[in-house]
Design a binder for these strands. Structure first.
Length: 270
DNA sequence: ATATGCACCTGTGTGC
DNA sequence: TGCACACAGGTGCATA
């Protein structure tokens, strides 16, 4: 479900409630996530105070007062919600954190592709494997050239490779390429140098625009406060197969690239 | 190293 | 109404 803007929306709604709060109880109802929840998960979390909530790409990092970090990834269907204490447990509520004040923090994930890990930051393998966050560090032209030189991979698939840039998923890869006027199937190594800057600008702009709208709600994404994301109405191509391109009116096309639905305007994107 | 296909899960929508 | 199937915002591994 969530890409960078949805994760950032989650971070922003959680921060005032969770930052500075102490975890007084950890209830685990399902350990089988993308990786099994560590046996000492509860023990390492109970009694800890959350000192900061950061984000890298699609990962949320809860800094704890003993120097460890609680790492959370929402996978395709995960969410972190704030609920009043005493709320009955819903289906797929796998982990419930009770804080010393305010609402409880609930990790819900029907498909269980999400991830929760605790460790020192340099011990978390997931973090080591991901590239820079495009909102914090705009890639330079030289970086891009190095990353794409000789690559025949479609540029859209490359944008979704978290090792290069962290945070772009299927929706925003489609949207960024539309804004930049680049065909999603174009081999990454065959993009003219002059097009990189517009592409990077498009990536950053679409991510920022989506964050302002609270992310994209397709069917069920909601921020931690239950509000949906309003970027859905701003999507130019994603999910709009057959509908007119907002720029030229030609029907938006859909094809599959790298096993993912890919939307584009064949007139505006070359 | 690079590219591809599939596996991991459950829920929902569609077509018969 | 019931059923089978395709598909979904992601990642990681096995295979060429």
């Amino acid at each position: 479900m969530p890409e960078l803007p949805e994760v950032e929306t989650t971070r922003r709604t959680l921060r005032p409630h969770v930052c500075g709060a102490r975890v007084v109880a950890v209830a685990v109802h399902e350990r089988r996530l993308r990786r099994p929840l560590a046996p000492d998960f509860e023990e390492r979390l109970r009694g800890r105070t959350v000192t900061a909530i950061e984000r890298r790409g699609k990962y949320l990092l809860f800094a704890l007062d003993d120097g460890a970090t609680l790492l959370a990834h929402l996978g395709m269907s995960g969410s972190l919600a704030l609920v009043p204490p005493g709320t009955p447990r819903a289906p797929h509520d796998h982990v419930v954190l009770t804080l010393d004040r305010g609402p409880q923090l609930v990790f819900n994930d029907p498909r269980r592709f999400g991830l929760l890990q605790i460790g020192r930051r340099d011990e978390l393998p997931a973090l080591r494997a991901i590239g820079p966050d495009p909102l914090s560090a705009a890639p330079t032209l030289d970086t891009w050239r190095a990353l794409t030189r000789g690559r025949r991979l479609p540029i859209k698939s490359l944008l979704m490779d978290q090792r290069l840039l962290a945070g772009i998923g299927n929706i925003y890869a489609n949207e960024a390429l539309y804004r930049a006027g680049i065909h999603p199937a174009r081999p990454a190594g065959r993009i003219a140098r002059a097009r990189f800057e517009p592409l990077v600008d498009s990536i950053r702009a679409v991510l920022r625009d989506a964050i302002v709208q609270g992310g994209t709600t397709l069917r069920d994404f909601a921020g931690s406060d239950g509000r949906p994301g309003y970027f859905s109405g701003c999507l130019d191509v994603y999910g709009r197969a057959g509908e007119p391109c907002r720029r030229c009116g030609a029907p938006v096309r859909m094809r599959v690239l790298g096993q993912r639905a890919t939307y584009y305007c064949s007139a505006c994107q070359r």
